[in-house]
């Protein structure tokens, strides 16, 4: 049951789009910055399979420029 957090950077000017996209994904919670083009993403998936699927989806998001992990935890380990 991994919990991870990231800093997500949008394509230029696309913060709103990125927030919409991320917010629509299962297992994702976001905290957008009010004054910078960056959004905090916290993911909380039930198992490794879901985690892998999510990571794949994230990689394919067109509105996302880059994603850098800041925290990782697997509760059952």
């Amino acid at each position: 049951m991994p919990i991870l957090s990231y800093l997500a950077l949008p394509q230029t000017g696309g913060l709103k789009q990125l927030c919409n996209d991320l917010d629509g994904l299962e297992y994702c919670e976001i905290i957008p910055s009010l004054n910078e083009e960056v959004v905090v993403l916290v993911t909380d998936t039930p198992d490794l399979k879901a985690e892998k699927n999510l990571q794949k989806t994230l990689k394919e998001l067109p509105s996302l420029q880059s994603l850098s992990m800041t925290f990782g935890h697997n509760a059952e380990q």
């Binding site: 009010l34 960056v38 993403l41």
Partner: peptide, 20 residues
């Protein structure tokens, strides 16, 4: 804690950043 860590990192990258 995960969110806090991300926000701390963001703060180091973007001074003065604030979050909703």
């Amino acid at each position: 804690a995960a969110a806090g860590s991300a926000i701390a990192t963001a703060g180091a990258l973007f001074p003065g950043i604030s979050f909703a």
